[in-house]
């Protein structure tokens, strides 16, 4: 399972960076989203995969470490997803505004701030 997830994480990172390097604004934002997912899944994988155990132990399993699943990575990912959702939604609004104001979604056209004109 770790191997599969590791490959997925790698693929997501690769796809994310590839998309960010594209010239189209829409593809950039898809790339940013993929990069976020890659980071979340990475956190999930390295946080340790425990199958069939619960984070809250009661009854006879109480106090036994081997049957304990760490819930913290999931909590962290959940928070990160919520934040990522907010940030990406903002970015989407921004990118839409850019498209409306400047009239292009080609990043190569957006160089007014670098040439100083």
């Amino acid at each position: 399972m770790e191997l599969l997830l590791a490959i997925t994480v790698g693929a997501l990172y690769a796809a994310g960076f590839y998309m960010i390097l594209r010239r189209s604004l829409v593809k950039v934002i898809i790339g940013l989203a993929l990069l976020g997912h890659a980071a979340h899944l990475f956190l999930f994988t390295v946080g340790g995969l425990t199958r069939g155990s619960a984070p809250l132990l009661t009854g006879e399993t109480a106090g036994r470490v081997e049957s304990y699943a760490d819930p913290l990575p999931q909590a962290l990912i959940l928070t990160a997803i919520v934040i990522g959702f907010g940030v990406q939604a903002f970015a989407l609004v921004l990118f839409k505004r850019v498209y409306q104001t400047i009239g292009t979604d080609d990043l190569d056209q957006l160089k007014a701030t670098d040439t100083g004109s």
């Binding site: 907010g86 939604a89 989407l92 609004v93 839409k96």
Partner: peptide, 9 residues
């Protein structure tokens, strides 16, 4: 927050 963004879009 969600409605602000959704309605804006």
């Amino acid at each position: 927050m969600v409605l602000m963004i959704v309605l804006e879009l």
